[in-house]
Design a protein around this nucleic acid. Structure first.
Lengths: 142, 142
DNA sequence: ATGGTTGCAAACACTTTGCACATGA
DNA sequence: TCATGTGCAAAGTGTTTGCAACCAT
């Protein structure tokens, strides 16, 4: 579980995993790296269009799947049915999702490590990861 | 947040919330009540067919949405993109999802209540619920 | 009787796939 | 050069909606 994106050299990061550095891939890595929230495919496509990089859904889905398989990106599945992606790079965190405006906020810290260990042992289950989302109302909406 | 399904009188439970007691609704409530796992719509349809209750996806989705809005059922969203439902009736719990065979196991106990309070306060976020799923390998698959 | 429910088909949204063409190394 | 990647269109899923017919109360 090494940190593939350590030096923001996206091109090198791609080559290191036997992926070619295409304009779309480079731009997506940069966008994910700058993003404060997990991004869904349509948001990514809009961004690429703004950057004058012509693309389409099939390609972006393919890229996101590859980045996921190479452990460069991590998908999270929210209640609206859209998959959102973040760089695996980021510190482990959870999400606060506002049910009114849809805003997604990160919560840093892996606060349930010990719980995870305990549960895994008790249920004889090899836990590899977890997904913890809090749903409610953000400051502006409550 | 009263317990609507306290006495397994599904008909009464439905009437109490201004819902008519149709064969599909009664059977779904009973099925959910007996189920050890959250159920997705196709699984529910298969069950209804076995029970000689003719139905279709639109109807079952509509029923599940209504039950969710009436706080009788709770949806959970898993990585395979399918929504699964449980009775709101059940003790609060989390899920262990086997990434190989797909089996879903419940983990009883609301072990992160205090964490939730803490995070809500710190982020000025009104947390109404959370969703915690553990992914990995079950006894049989590891 | 009549308003809530269903069934069917069509529409939607998200995601995947096939195949010819284009391109990075 | 040539394997890898892209674009487009079509197809695959899960879910929702419109509307006429149906049925629980």
């Amino acid at each position: 579980m090494e940190n593939i994106l350590q030096n923001k050299n996206y091109r090198e990061s791609l080559n290191k995993t036997n992926l070619r550095a295409t304009p779309a891939r480079l731009a997506i890595l940069q966008y994910l790296d700058e993003a404060k929230n997990p991004l869904d495919v349509n948001t990514i496509i809009d961004y690429l269009n703004c950057q004058k990089i012509k693309t389409n859904q099939a390609t972006v889905f393919r890229i996101m799947n590859i980045l996921t398989n190479k452990n460069i990106a991590i998908p999270t599945y929210f209640q609206d049915g859209k998959t959102r992606y973040e760089l695996a790079n980021k510190k482990h965190h959870h999400h606060l999702v506002c049910e009114k405006c849809g805003k997604i906020e990160d919560v840093e810290g892996d606060s349930i490590q010990s719980l995870e260990k305990e549960i895994g042992k008790e249920h004889k289950f090899l836990i590899k990861k977890h997904s913890l989302e809090f749903y409610g109302l953000c400051v502006g909406c409550k």
